[in-house]
Simulated assay, not measured.
Amino acid sequence: MVVMSIAGVDPSAGAGVFADLKTFQAIGVYGCGVVTALTAQNPNRVFSISPIDVNYIEEQIDAVLDAYDITYIKTGMLYSPEIIELVGNKITEYNLKAVIDPVMVATSGGDLTKNDLADALNKYLLPKAILTTPNISEAEKLTDLKINSKEDAIKASEKFPCDVLITGGHLDGINTMNFSGEITIEKQELLKSDNLHGTGCNLSSAIVAYLEKGNNLKTSCLKSFDYVYEAIKNGDYGTLIAKI
């Protein structure tokens, strides 16, 4: 069971490719990681970002898929429209099933993109995805709708060109899932914690891992909610390896 993350590198390892690989391992699948950008950041601050050349990202993807038979992938920070278009093309070329975490801003508030990427995501990537997992801010940018309530989230979910999970960390714990037009609301207790860096990365990578293990999309999402909740509660994603 092999999956792949295409995302940036967070040297503090709470988010990005390093976090994705830890989550893959914790849930029991082998993870490969393609790097789109290097960052100097920690849970509190983004210092700088250095993107990887688009051609080199393509070579990384081709190298991994030359060696491994991969079905499920996730994407995180893709940085630029050019990288987004490339990844969309690769999803088509290799017939990949992609979970898109449309990362635009770090948990600390730092901008992780070259430009406003909403148009590029909507054009090149989301129509090819099996799921996207925006937080409230990202969902607002992608749909051009303001989300202040459960009803707003449901309305926004109907504008996505793929199945969507709008996470509820900034909406009183209300997670809104729209799978093939069927709406499911899953409300979770919000924990007061300083251990929130990279929660979106870990959620989307957990979904991919559970999909690879044979769960359907809804079950994978529900299991991933529990995984991230326990990680926040325990203060360490690595402690979950023996518990999954």
Results as ranks from 00 to 15, higher is better:
82 E>Y: 00
234 N>K: 13
147 I>G: 03
47 F>I: 12
206 A>H: 08
130 I>Y: 07
84 I>D: 04
213 K>R: 14
240 L>K: 04
236 D>A: 15
77 M>Q: 01
69 D>H: 06
117 L>E: 12
174 I>W: 02
172 D>S: 11
225 F>Y: 14
202 N>Q: 15
66 D>A: 13
148 N>C: 07
174 I>H: 01
177 M>W: 02
240 L>R: 06
137 S>C: 07
173 G>K: 04
202 N>R: 15
148 N>V: 10
74 K>R: 10
95 N>D: 15
240 L>W: 06
24 F>H: 10
62 D>T: 08
32 C>F: 05
222 L>A: 01
118 A>N: 04
141 K>L: 15
175 N>A: 11
19 A>S: 14
187 K>Q: 15
220 S>K: 01
125 L>F: 07
192 K>M: 08
127 P>C: 12
243 K>Y: 01
153 A>P: 10
8 G>M: 07
1 M>G: 12
212 E>A: 15
74 K>H: 07
13 A>E: 12
228 V>I: 15
64 V>I: 14
180 S>D: 14
19 A>E: 10
217 L>P: 05
103 V>L: 02
17 V>H: 01
188 Q>R: 12
53 D>S: 12
7 A>F: 11
175 N>G: 13
118 A>L: 00
228 V>Q: 01
177 M>F: 12
127 P>M: 12
51 P>E: 12
234 N>Y: 13
124 Y>I: 02
23 T>G: 09
212 E>P: 06
175 N>V: 03
102 P>A: 05
30 Y>R: 09
46 V>Q: 04
186 E>Q: 08
92 T>R: 03
37 A>Q: 00
78 L>E: 08
6 I>A: 12
61 I>G: 04
65 L>R: 06
9 V>W: 05
22 K>T: 06
36 T>S: 15
39 T>A: 10
6 I>V: 14
85 E>T: 10
68 Y>K: 11
44 N>G: 02
77 M>L: 11
52 I>P: 02
54 V>L: 06
147 I>M: 06
113 T>V: 15
50 S>Y: 15
222 L>K: 05
93 E>W: 00
97 K>Q: 11
62 D>K: 13
141 K>N: 14
35 V>M: 13
67 A>E: 15
135 N>F: 12
80 S>G: 12
181 G>K: 02
83 I>G: 03
173 G>A: 09
146 K>L: 13
122 N>M: 08
13 A>L: 09
10 D>L: 03
111 D>W: 00
125 L>M: 14
78 L>Q: 06
17 V>N: 04
142 L>S: 00
